[in-house]
């Protein structure tokens, strides 16, 4: 993943708390087995409403979504983050996020910037006043700057570390395989473990599970 040192661009205000991932990426698109092409399905249902902010041409091309508290709650579907990113967002700014959504953002390289509710409202108001004005989030200084003000945002330390260095978690952990192997040797015998060859009802192969 590419390191993310800063994000800048225009904002889109989404004035609503508790936006859950069922809204961001409705279930009918989770059947897709690809990792791309989710952008067009973001907020699929809400976009049927012509008044919904995603349909407001003033905000088209915005790269930073300024949302309400507990954003990304509910289902763990990473497709929600992929969708936002593929739609064009590099960051979401909100007073709070769900844990799993925050983690999913880090994995995809999207910045889940936490700001106090007042600051969030100021940003939304600034976007409403002048949709062409931009905002910048600097991950090195943790400053948020926009035409008309500046402040600080918060990122979970580890999320920041992943973003700033463009860390690939899988590669990172693979680097510790020796330690993992050592740990595995000391596991007690009663840990769950399925021996496929002797387990009735489980199958391995293209016909898996077709015999009762």
């Amino acid at each position: 993943m590419e390191p993310v040192l800063w994000v800048r661009g225009r904002m889109m205000p989404l004035v609503r708390d508790d936006v859950d991932t069922d809204q961001i990426m409705p279930k009918q698109f989770l059947s897709r087995v690809e990792r791309d092409g989710f952008g067009e399905f973001v907020f699929h249902e809400w976009r049927r409403d012509p008044e919904f902010v995603f349909n407001d041409p003033r905000f088209s091309g915005a790269r930073i979504l300024v949302a309400g508290s507990n954003f990304g709650s509910g289902s763990s579907r990473e497709h929600a983050v992929w969708g936002l990113q593929q739609y064009g967002f590099d960051a979401v700014v909100a007073p709070s996020f769900s844990d799993i959504f925050t983690g999913n953002c880090a994995q995809a390289g999207v910045v889940p910037a936490v700001v106090p509710p007042e600051l969030c409202r100021s940003l939304q108001a600034a976007a409403e006043r002048d949709p062409d004005s931009g905002v910048e989030l600097d991950l090195t200084t943790m400053r948020v700057m926009w035409t008309g003000g500046s402040g600080t945002f918060h990122l979970d330390d580890q999320v920041r570390e992943v973003l700033l260095h463009g860390l690939d978690d899988v590669a990172l952990v693979l680097g510790q395989l020796d330690v993992i192997t050592q740990y595995e040797r000391a596991r007690p015998a009663w840990m769950p473990h399925l021996d496929v060859s002797v387990v009735p009802g489980a199958a391995v192969g293209p016909d898996a599970g077709t015999t009762p």
């Binding site: 009735p200 009802g201 489980a202 199958a203 391995v204 898996a208 599970g209 077709t210």
Partner: peptide
């Protein structure tokens, strides 16, 4: 080689 209790499995 992952065990699967798929459709049709009891």
């Amino acid at each position: 080689g992952v065990p699967l209790f798929g459709l049709g499995s009891h």
